[in-house]
Nucleic acid binder design. Sequence first.
DNA 1: TTGAAAGCGCTAACAC
DNA 2: GTGTTAGCGCTTTCAA
Lengths: 351, 351
Amino acid sequence: MHHITNLKEKSMIAMATLYDVAKRAGVSPKTVSRVFNESHLVTEETKNRVLSAVRELDYHPNAIATSLKKQRTNTIGFVVPYGSSFVFQDPNMMEQLRGAHDQLTREGYEVIVSAPIYQKDALTEISRLVKHRNVDGVILYPASGVDRIINEFNLKNFYYVTLGTCFEGQKTNFADLNVAPGAYLAARHLVSRGHSQIGLVNKPRSFFMIGKDDLLYGYQTALQESNLKYNVNLVREGDYTFESGYHAFKTLKEQNPEITAVLCASDPMAYGVIRAIEDAGLVLSRDIEVVAGDNLPLTQKLFPSVSSINNPAYEQGNLAGKMIISIIQTGSESPGITLKTEFVVRSNRIL
Amino acid sequence: MHHITNLKEKSMIAMATLYDVAKRAGVSPKTVSRVFNESHLVTEETKNRVLSAVRELDYHPNAIATSLKKQRTNTIGFVVPYGSSFVFQDPNMMEQLRGAHDQLTREGYEVIVSAPIYQKDALTEISRLVKHRNVDGVILYPASGVDRIINEFNLKNFYYVTLGTCFEGQKTNFADLNVAPGAYLAARHLVSRGHSQIGLVNKPRSFFMIGKDDLLYGYQTALQESNLKYNVNLVREGDYTFESGYHAFKTLKEQNPEITAVLCASDPMAYGVIRAIEDAGLVLSRDIEVVAGDNLPLTQKLFPSVSSINNPAYEQGNLAGKMIISIIQTGSESPGITLKTEFVVRSNRIL
DNA sequence: TTGAAAGCGCTAACAC
DNA sequence: GTGTTAGCGCTTTCAA
């Protein structure tokens, strides 16, 4: 049945197979398999004989063979477009990944991470991972074109969860975030502290479904309630990066000299704003009050006086992990869940 | 040969197999396989027939079956102990991961990332991934106990690369970093600017093989050359985190009131030092000059006046990726490579 | 409680 | 240039 050790190159040592264990223990292959999968169906005595053989031969079940037979890999793909710098250098995205990782590994899944540079590649990568059966399902990030993939996945019963909604009317399989509550509270807070010229550095338009879960919505609602009129000129659109925050504040200040506060959609953009404030010869929290968007630990530590919208990115990733597992195990879709943002005050404004 | 669509649950759609394609195209399975693997051995005409069938059936090769047959998965494990917060929240480690990811995906490998909380689990995880054949090889991080795993891997011809050396005398399969040159230049620079009380916030002792590639070594060498005597009391040991940096500066300043400069082994620790400086009522770069350890983009942006040792973490990860691929493809070990740190001056000291 | 035989989807060896 | 056959290492009927 089994051939002699395959003398590839120098000393490739043949790994023991389940058959080797069976032979050694004097039982059938199926019995060995049972010991690993349904051990309650095996006598204590035979089990011990098998386990001895396992130890003696240093046997480890071949995960690939198991996957082929069972038609599942116990692996989940985490695919994010926009390139590896965008992903691995964005602490907020890393929090999402961390949340997913923790949940998935706790449940015995491996995590394949992929961050192709181009959206097109990302879409291909998602399809490939799933269709080639490398993974049992994917957690994926909104990007243009993802809706088509989702459509196909729905038809073919492939499993996925999205980090945010990917098209209007998506009802299932998403772990989303509603930024409006945090933005609303943040804007109210700023107004209550006497600010009336409040800048908004929003996320890129392409990233969101315009609607009631948006930063802008919370901001506008708060202004309305306070009878402050909405000024388009106080709104900027960044791309989550430091640079875009820096640039946003620069132009905000130029066009609105009276500006005294800025609300940011992300922490890295808040850093850019802060840097721009200092470069303009102004003092953070005295001349301009900044509200950050993620409430990252680092931000709290570096800028203890900066209040922040709380972005539960870890929980979001965790939730996505839970959802994909449940979807795989039940074989049916999961209702979408939307987490809420909050607002954390850290105002020890200077003067 | 092939059974009717397996009506699991509702509508699990059967994926086309290579046999289905073969039948449809009127060729043998092997010919279909050839089209995907050695297409130059197939006539243009049959190839086209096969590809039509592939398209019509929406066929995708099953990666698991290929892996089982070929005895390789085209997947590399990236395993780091110390837990997911330590990993995903450390921008420097993310740079290593990013470097590895970019190289590996470019070469057609998937990356499985795993960050177990306990070192013990990490060691188990490394073994499992490799022994169960989930991955073709692993990139792993120094931790106590890794040396035993390496020993076993060497014996059994399993493939690995380490990010740094894991035991004294390791000669192969590592992508290491020599911190001494950067530390030396940094210390010389500080001395040349008139500093004589220079604090050192080093990495944790357990992380390094004490030797000539150490931060301390570069620091001491520079002091010696300048005829400054080495003062143990100016040296602290952190654990790469903000908190440890904060605490380090606090005690440094208490015990060395004359201190005017601090050299840090990592950027997060430098952030902690900077925060502590400000909390002590001192001004960064005027009262205390700080040198950071990683030269992260964020640090450059947030603190433009802070010089830094340059930590080529991306390159290190990239190199590790290159090495593991070469090791797998040639079947033989790779000589270890040590990257050098440099020093980047950004001194626009205030006053 | 245990075992025999078939086969998951692919490719390597060896025909033709 | 193309096809046949066996088998990668496991689990799943089904039978004993």
